[in-house]
Design a protein around this nucleic acid. Structure first.
Length: 735
DNA sequence: TTAGGGTTAG
């Protein structure tokens, strides 16, 4: 049963749709216009006759939607109303549903009507998609299905054989029951002959719609694919763009790209045209697995096949590139989106605010936040959380608090993310006890602490050097019935390693093993970053003693790296990072940073250099080496450890020298950005900066601090080139 | 016909 057109209420891009979703449902939906309100709710009401219930649902308006009981009137139709209210506006729709039983042929000539009328506050306007009367029409074939439907439901509940789905297509609840039955069969056992038999016993001709509903509920990839292939073999059945898209999404989520490619080719071969959603899912699947180039290739491919990217396509690409640290590319996609005629909405604005914040461009982020408000797009809870986080991490606590209050004023209640942000900021600025108070406040507000929240408390106390409090919170987590997870164990481990309490650290690792928690790449990063100083060998032993149920690639890698001199270092490193393809870039960067620092510290400079080369090749440091302009080159060592910063600097200087030799042109200026340094305790006293400075000074470099930026060394290109060709410098550069 | 896609912290 389809509604031909909707009534649109559109104050600031929000809309209210009233649609006849199905013969048994009326659907009233409103979205996005009030900054203060975010949650959805729905209300089902009893509805006599063929129409089982009317649903008034709102994505935005939480409490006030209303749908009246529909009453039969003397014109042989039902009438009633549905409304959505918010503090700023009210929308209500009067609906009238004729209930005349007509023949199919007559239906085609004369369609029954559903009339809707909008009422609204004076501040907002209603405009209608098709006509000014706010009329919308639905075809309906009335009550003659009711009898059949009742019979089918009865049979389903009876557990007897079902009618063919083609005969019972009229009822949503029956469709749901069929889907549930199929899902039950799939859930009961591993895929096999029994499953196939059980499915064929149902004797159903499932439609692509139903197959898709089943697929959406499948958690197990293999099972989903088996079901998908089973469906394909059913007589008269053909997958459509929806089922292909859902299956592609499942394979993408499981990172099974071989099967994904195969299925996509099959889709094309079968003449099933990929939709915009198909392409968006492919872009997302590849991108989340760090195959960013593949994502961009799909984006380009869309143009060649005439599929115009939409706001979601651009949003996905913006998000992926932000996560990979390629902020400039993300901004490029944002510009492209606008050139393609899409103005940013709340969602896209939030993505870009996140992007600018991650790129360290707080002013640009806030400018965009203000722009979005000016443009009439209310910030969402996510937008507020993001902006608060950026301000807080930059130490602008007054602005963070202002936005926090604005957010509450706009009607949002802080959620777990908001509380986490507040806790983290307090903890990292030395106020761990206040962070505890925020956690209690969170619990009073009705949220329960989960493993990540407990883990955060463990982490904060651990980082403040208080392992006792860290373990106290860890135990609180266990006692509250929350299962420990790997990050929480990592935090406790880190607390002990920080204090050189190796026995306690070993106990944590043993507990992890006992609980079946396998060490993660972060576990190895932690262990590696502690392997320093006089007790280095003891720490290395601890690290190498670590074993999960399945050996982590980092274990194999570090063993072969630390126990003997590997024959082909570069291919070993490359192979390891290939194995880490699906890890988050940030996580891999953390491991690489610890590894290079460790190798540099242990006098294995050559190996450290190889690791740097390969992580650059793998785009783990997309922002490290950039050109401000063609004549202004720079290397950014801002968030690196000392060892990594020095290795990166020397390698980049070699690169700059090669570029000058090849092009025969020296840049006007070259910048070395050290910032305040990740390891710095006191503002302005960056350990990275001092390490870089002493290296440059010891070699008599032409770099110097220029202007107000104390964290930036500058040199002109020509004297730099001369310096780089001096024998004692060349000697240092080769390792 | 119905349905399918993108965001924040740890």
């Amino acid at each position: 049963m389809a509604l031909e057109t909707n009534s649109y209420f559109n104050p600031r891009g929000g809309e209210v749709k009233v649609s006849h979703k199905h013969s048994s449902q009326i659907y009233c939906q409103s979205s996005a216009f009030n900054p203060g309100i975010s949650l959805a709710g729905s209300q089902d009401i009893a509805f006599p006759g063929d129409y089982q219930h009317v649903e008034a649902r709102s994505k935005v308006v939480p409490h006030v939607h209303h749908a009246s009981d529909f009453k039969k009137n003397d014109k042989d139709s039902f009438h009633g109303s549905a409304s959505c209210n918010s503090s700023q506006s009210r929308v209500s729709c009067l609906v009238e549903i004729p209930l005349t039983t007509v023949s199919e042929s007559r239906l085609k000539e004369k369609k029954s009507c559903l009339k809707g009328k909008g009422k609204y506050d004076k501040n907002f306007k209603i405009h209608c998609d098709r006509d000014n009367d706010h009329h919308f029409r639905i075809p309906t074939n009335g009550a003659h299905r009711a009898q059949h439907k009742a019979c089918t439901i009865h049979q389903l509940r009876d557990g007897r054989r079902l009618h063919s789905a083609t005969n019972i297509s009229g009822s949503m609840s029956v469709k749901k029951e069929i889907v549930e039955r199929v899902c039950d069969i799939l859930a009961k056992r591993e895929w096999g002959q029994e499953t196939v038999q059980a499915l064929s016993d149902l004797d159903l001709n499932l439609s692509p719609f139903q197959i898709n509903e089943v697929l959406k509920q499948q958690k197990d990839t293999e099972r989903a694919l088996s079901f998908f292939n089973w469906a394909k073999d059913q007589r008269g059945y053909k997958h459509d763009a929806h089922t292909y898209t859902t299956m592609l999404g499942i394979l993408g989520r499981a990172r099974n790209f071989e099967a994904l490619d195969c299925l996509f080719n099959e889709m094309l071969r079968e003449g099933c045209k990929p939709s915009i959603v198909t392409y968006n899912r492919l872009i997302h699947s590849y991108g989340r697995a760090n195959y960013l180039e593949a994502s961009r290739n799909i984006f380009n491919h869309m143009h060649t096949v005439g599929c115009k990217p939409d706001r979601v396509t651009y949003g996905t690409l913006i998000d992926l590139h932000t996560k990979a640290g390629c902020h400039d590319t993300a901004v490029g996609f944002y510009d492209m989106m606008q050139q393609a005629g899409y103005c940013p909405d709340t969602f896209t604005y939030s993505l870009m605010i996140h992007c600018f914040g991650k790129a360290g461009k707080l002013t640009a982020a806030y400018r965009l936040f203000c722009e979005m408000v000016d443009q009439g797009y209310p910030p969402s809870l996510v937008t507020y959380n993001t902006m608060i986080d950026h301000f807080a991490k930059a130490g602008k606590f007054d602005m963070a608090m202002k936005l926090y209050n604005d957010m509450k004023e706009a009607g949002y209640r802080p959620d777990q993310v908001t509380y986490s942000i507040m806790m983290e900021v307090l903890g990292h600025s030395g106020h761990v006890e206040e962070a505890e108070l925020v956690l209690f406040e969170m619990e009073q507000a009705g949220w329960t602490a989960d493993a990540p929240i407990y883990g955060l408390m463990v982490d904060l106390w651990g980082k403040s050097g208080n392992a006792e409090k860290a373990v106290e919170w860890f135990n609180k987590m266990i006692h509250s019935g929350v299962k420990a997870n790997v990050p929480a164990c990592n935090s406790l481990l880190s607390a002990y390693l920080r204090l050189n309490s190796y026995n306690a650290a070993r106990e944590v690792l043993q507990s992890m093993s006992k609980w079946g928690l396998d060490p993660s790449l972060q576990t190895y990063t932690l262990l590696l970053s502690c392997c320093k100083g006089t007790e280095q060998q003891q720490q290395i032993d601890l690290m190498l003693s670590l074993k999960g149920r399945i050996e982590h690639p980092a274990h194999t890698f570090l063993c072969s790296f630390l126990t003997s001199e590997p024959s082909d270092t570069r291919s070993l490193i490359r192979h390891f990072f290939d194995c880490m393809q699906f890890e988050e870039q940030e996580t891999k960067r953390g491991f690489a940073d610890s590894l290079i620092d460790f190798l540099h510290d242990s006098g294995l400079k050559s190996a450290a250099g190889h690791v740097w080369d390969i992580v650059v090749e793998k785009s783990l440091y997309p922002r490290a080496v950039t050109d401000k302009t063609p004549h202004h080159w720079s290397v950014n060592l801002h968030v690196m450890s000392i060892g990594t910063a020095l290795v990166a600097l020397l390698r980049t200087l070699v690169l700059f020298k090669e570029r000058m030799v090849t092009s025969g042109v020296a840049p006007e200026r070259v910048y070395i950005i050290t910032g305040w340094g990740r390891r710095s305790r006191v503002a302005g006293a960056s350990l990275v900066k001092h390490a870089v400075e002493s290296l440059l000074n010891s070699l008599g470099s032409p770099f110097h601090i220029d202007g107000a930026n104390l964290g930036c060394f500058v040199s002109k290109g020509k004297p730099l080139f001369q310096w780089l060709t001096e024998p004692q410098v060349e000697q240092v550069l080769v390792f």
